[in-house]
Amino acid sequence: MRLRPAPGQALGAEVTGFELENASADDLKTLRAGIYEHQLLLLKEQHLDPAGFIALGKALGTIETYYEPMYHHPEHPEIFVSGSKPGENFKGVPQTGKFWHADYSFMPNPFGITMTYPQIVPTTRRGTYYLDMAKAFADLPESLRNTLRGTKVEHSARRYVKIRPSDVYKPMHEVLADIERTTPAVYHPTVFRHPVTGVEVLYVSEAASFGFVDRNGVRLPGEILQEVLERTGQLDPECRDPRIHLQTFVKGDLLIWDNRVLVHRALHNPAPEPAQSYRVTVHDDEPFFGVEDGNA
């Protein structure tokens, strides 16, 4: 197995020669360390069936099955399915993740590692945008960093909703009530130190963040969240901010990233071309938030 920084890119590393069935304990240790060092790994020439993909997730930690069954692979609920594959008798949910987010940030216990395994890659536009929120925090003005340390940020799933079949013809107030009942808002540290690397991470996303509260639970002005999103590049509609990394992929590629540090956003092909990806999400052996800055 060989792991090397992606040539010409500030973010990510490429892994070649990795075969799960032949991977040693040292290989898996190197893979885990690479996730934290490089934030994003692109494993080349993978040939895993669904059970093998799940086995890779279990080799990295404990798999979290997504709470909404409509995303589940019919035979392997641990796999979240985005898109559909011609000839299959089940349909994944199309066009997922078209907004900046960290997976599961709106839940009480987010996970540390996300893996996606494209099954059908369109011939034209397809990829995922990433932003390094440790670097984004370091680039903020010192006064704003000091304002954010020690605060908490509200996360909720209520901004972007995938309508379920059972929601058709249901009054919107009932749909919203279901969201609040199933995924009530949670408050996470706005800034924390990564439990492995020790860097300060800004845990804020355009999709799920709804404002900051101070140590006493008092809501900070909404303009602060707007400024943070603007300064971190998440309000750029064309994703041309120089800090944004676009990771493309080909058939056989498997992406693994540090879900603590990176927020991401899918790049979808607007043309009606088949596309499908599998996703497995993993709790690693570390506390998610490490040490909350300002409260240590």
Rank of each mutant, 00 (worst) to 15 (best):
A6L: 14
P7R: 09
Q9S: 12
L11F: 04
L11Q: 08
L11E: 02
G12E: 08
E14Q: 08
E14L: 11
L20K: 12
L20P: 10
S24N: 00
L28P: 03
K29W: 05
L31T: 11
A33K: 07
I35W: 01
Y36F: 15
L40V: 05
L42M: 14
K44I: 08
K44R: 15
Q46H: 12
A51G: 14
G52S: 09
A55W: 08
G61M: 01
I63W: 00
Y66F: 15
Y67G: 07
Y67F: 13
E68T: 04
E68R: 06
E68K: 00
M70Q: 11
H72A: 12
P74T: 11
E75L: 11
F80W: 06
G83M: 04
K85T: 14
P86C: 07
K91E: 13
G92P: 04
V93M: 09
V93L: 04
P94C: 11
P94D: 11
T96P: 00
H101G: 06
S105D: 13
F106P: 00
F106E: 07
F106I: 01
Y117S: 08
I120S: 03
P122D: 07
T123W: 05
T123E: 15
R126H: 15
L131V: 14
D132M: 10
D139T: 10
E142W: 01
T147N: 03
K152M: 01
R159F: 08
Y160L: 13
V161D: 02
K162Y: 12
R164H: 12
V168C: 04
P171D: 12
M172D: 11
E174V: 08
L176A: 07
L176T: 00
E180A: 15
T183Q: 08
V186W: 08
Y187W: 15
Y187N: 10
P189V: 11
H194M: 09
V196E: 07
G198N: 09
V199P: 03
V204N: 10
S209K: 01
F210H: 11
N216L: 05
N216W: 08
V218R: 10
V218A: 11
R219V: 09
R219M: 03
L220V: 02
G222P: 04
R231E: 03
P237I: 01
C239D: 11
R240K: 11
D241I: 05
R243A: 14
H245T: 10
L246P: 06
T248V: 11
F249A: 00
F249P: 05
D253H: 07
D258N: 14
N259S: 01
V261W: 05
R265H: 14
A266S: 12
A266V: 03
L267Y: 06
L267E: 08
H268L: 10
P272K: 06
E273L: 06
E273M: 08
E273H: 06
A275C: 09
Y278A: 02
T281Y: 02
T281R: 01
V282T: 04
D284V: 07
D285Q: 04
E286R: 12
